[in-house]
Design a protein around this nucleic acid. Structure first.
Length: 228
DNA sequence: GACTGATCATGC
DNA sequence: GCATGATCAGTC
């Protein structure tokens, strides 16, 4: 019987083995073995799948702005897919800092750090399927290719330029080929500090970095062809 | 049907 | 409010 991990994985191989052992199982089976209640939908439990898998893989739960497995340099992400393997949602990467960003470079950015090595765990996410019925697919351990890295860097620099120049309010989810910035908050009333048009401090809605579906789809396809 | 902007739970 | 985990749902 599959049970939650009792300790963090020591190696990437061990982590991969744990993830592969979950492939084909349903979220209901995992939750049942861990004595976790299963929501009937994700309206009020949007991060439930991710937290369930963290438990099974031995990730250190918490809200630190670090990778899930700091010792291994690996980030864990679940990815909802449809029956043909197409991602259903964009993927949240991290919070976007809007102030004191002039010293940050792509190489030292949180986005670059998070995406250095990601263990993607695709999960059936069709809304017609109840959470308990959704099956886990084959995990993908990914490191960005030079080309993907270049695309991400370009998007990141474009977006950060706008932030530095006080154009935060002009940023929409349409910017960026692979990386986009969207509101990220509890509700529309949340405010944080940002740089204004004349360099002054202004209040704006908090933002986060997200990966487009097309980009994550490419990652899954790439893994598929590597196997074949 | 896809996409963008909005929203939910939790811990500190 | 920030940061983690993300999905919802109205609009295009």
């Amino acid at each position: 019987m599959i049970t939650p991990a009792t300790s963090p994985p020591n190696t990437i191989e061990q982590l991969t083995l744990r993830a592969q052992a979950l492939a084909g199982l349903t979220l209901g089976e995992l939750a049942q073995n861990a004595n976790i209640r299963i929501p009937s939908n994700f309206k009020r439990d949007k991060g439930w799948t991710g937290q369930l898998l963290e438990l099974y893989l031995g990730a250190n739960a918490g809200s630190n702005p670090e990778q899930d497995f700091p010792e291994l340099g690996v980030e864990l992400k679940t990815l909802p897919i449809d029956s043909s393997g197409m991602p259903l949602e964009t993927t949240y990467v991290c919070f976007a800092h809007l102030l004191n960003v002039s010293g940050i470079t792509w190489e030292s950015s949180n986005v670059r750090n998070k995406l250095n090595c990601v263990l993607w765990i695709p999960v059936e996410g069709n809304r017609e399927l109840k959470p308990a019925e959704r099956r886990i697919a084959t995990p993908v351990l990914w490191q960005p290719t030079a080309q993907q890295l270049a695309t991400l860097k370009q998007d990141w620099e474009e977006l950060m330029d706008m932030i530095v120049l006080g154009e935060v309010e002009n940023i929409t989810a349409k910017h960026g080929q692979a990386l986009q910035i969207r509101p990220k908050a509890a509700d529309g009333k949340a405010l944080t500090d940002a740089i204004g048009k004349d360099g002054e401090k202004v209040k704006t809605r908090p933002r986060g970095f997200y990966l487009r579906k097309q980009f994550t789809h490419q990652i899954l396809l790439q893994a598929f062809y590597d196997e074949v």
